[in-house]
């Protein structure tokens, strides 16, 4: 049973990391890129505004950072819970 509860804790921690990552994922694309763009319209970026930048480039850069963060964080979590291959 000890292994089971450890596995459960591992899965819970994983789901939590996924949830946080997905909030950021949605915030930069659907948020800054589309829905919240009017709020960011005061911040000028090269002939347009921050929302335009997020929609065309910024969100892609954040997506990249998120995936690499997740890979790094999960490798650490695997080791902490002793479930790495």
């Amino acid at each position: 049973m000890a292994e089971n509860s450890s596995n459960n804790a591992y899965w819970k921690a994983n789901v939590r990391i996924i949830q946080i990552s997905l909030v950021i994922w949605a915030l930069v694309s659907f948020g800054f890129g589309i829905l919240l763009r009017p709020m960011l319209s005061g911040i000028a970026v090269g002939g347009s505004d921050l929302g335009f930048w997020f929609a065309q480039q910024g969100s892609i850069l954040v997506f990249l950072a998120l995936i690499f963060f997740y890979a790094w964080r999960m490798n650490k979590l695997d080791a902490e819970h002793g479930v790495e291959e």
Partner: peptide, 24 residues
């Protein structure tokens, strides 16, 4: 113009879902 940014965000953002929720 801006309105078609969906292609840019959509075809890259899917990789976040793939990497976090399916691939491993």
């Amino acid at each position: 113009g801006y309105d078609n940014s969906s292609f840019l965000m959509g075809w890259t953002g899917g990789y976040v879902l793939l990497a976090l929720m399916l691939a491993p």
